[in-house]
Design a protein around this nucleic acid. Structure first.
Ligand SMILES: [Mn+2]
Ligand SMILES: [Mn+2]
Ligand SMILES: [Zn+2]
Ligand SMILES: [Zn+2]
Lengths: 138, 138
DNA sequence: TGGAAAACTGAAAATCTTTCGCATCTTGTC
DNA sequence: GACAAGATGCGAAAGATTTTCAGTTTTCCA
């Protein structure tokens, strides 16, 4: 359970960490902002401050338990790291997110970095658009 | 000169706008944050407030004169819009930026959006890594 | 198990970047 | 030149995230 993952990540097992990891695993939403997590905690009558949520999410990120994403919404969103990289398709109207992985794109990126003698470290690809549900309306 | 571009963009020709556009055109750096532009103005003894810099850059963006980018640095950077879309390779150590355009990637993105029935609106691809100069050191 | 060191926590204050409110100027037009 | 519409500068405010700090909690080992 959570305790093990936290311990293996090299972090002390504390109530806030267990609770927050549990929320990320079971809340339904795969991509959550710190605020989202905080609200979920509140709704469960947990006494955990927002600063702690930020702190824990950042630690989880450092430990590789979660990935932080910067979509153009002003706030970071976090998702459990399942070990496999992927990119995102984001609906600019309703916020719906579709994950995808395109080997061709991944390959081209590596080639481009190599051509410019860059040692690639990471990348972020986000495609913004309107999801099927949001295309009719305005 | 600047006056014409500003006028054609449908904006009144004012001193701050002329000065800021001039800086974007002649400052050497192609990608500048609002703060960068502001500092440059200060160094030229211009009495232009930071709020005005943000305002003007946002207006320029709306008018299509500049593009706003969100690299993971916390602040937006702006660059003159030369009409051609491109993506970026960013050095995580020194901040060096290389621009590139890969038709294959562009095509794949469109296909992926189509497969998910998304009406693509925009996209952001940034590859982070170490530039040639920054690879030796730590 | 006992207890101290190390790590962690919540709340409040501090940062940082960006935007607002508004009184005061400018610009474009007649 | 006179005027309305639009811009500017300034300080305050906002929103997201981080830091500080004093009081807990967890770990670890005797
Ligand atoms: Mn994802
Ligand atoms: Mn560019
Ligand atoms: Zn949608
Ligand atoms: Zn570099």
């Amino acid at each position: 359970m959570e305790n093990e993952q936290i311990k293996q990540a090299g972090l002390k097992v504390t109530a806030p960490r267990i609770k927050i990891l549990g929320i990320l695993e079971r809340s339904g939403k795969r991509h959550m902002s710190a605020e989202d997590v905080y609200k979920e905690l509140l709704s469960q009558d947990e006494e955990i401050g927002l600063a702690t949520v930020y702190r824990v999410l950042t630690q989880f990120e450092g430990a590789g338990l979660v990935c932080r994403r910067h979509f153009e919404s002003g706030q970071s969103v976090f998702e459990l790291n399942n070990g496999e990289h992927h990119d995102h398709l984001v609906c600019i109207k309703c916020g719906a997110i579709v994950e995808f992985l395109d080997p061709t794109i991944e390959t081209r990126q590596k080639r481009i970095a190599a051509e410019h003698h860059f040692k690639i470290e990471d990348h972020s690809l986000v495609v913004y658009g309107l999801c099927p549900n949001c295309q009719g309306t305005r």
